[in-house]
Design a binder for these strands. Sequence first.
DNA 1: CCAATGACGACTT
DNA 2: GAAGTCGCCATTG
Length: 116
Amino acid sequence: MKSETVETKYSYFDLVYEITRQIPVGRVSSYGAIADYLALGSSRMVGWALNHSFAQMIELPAHRVVNRKGELTGRHHWNPPQLMGQLLQKEGVQIENDKVINFQEVFWHPKELDEG
DNA sequence: CCAATGACGACTT
DNA sequence: GAAGTCGCCATTG
């Protein structure tokens, strides 16, 4: 398959990338939050888009996107897998057992872009 | 075209 | 509140 087709056909790829780029340092967001903001109707699409961002080798702070529980479920797609947590810790996000400790405090929702 | 899969989430039991 | 079930939508075989 051609990756070009994907880029051309599905604009929400770029939307997901945009939102992910907007996540402040030291904060994290969730697939559901992004999916909700973009009205994708499916949080799976967010992870799917991020997964392809690797294949396209796009510079993206995908490590700031975790699932709704704050777990680093995407770490298996990193190289090495523990890099995801390491990057977050470097940014000030406390990680323990592959999940964000103070998830509620550092959680960031894209709606904050509209609020200011 | 049908079945299985996935970096998920909400609901029900 | 933990475990199980269904919904979600696009990709892949």
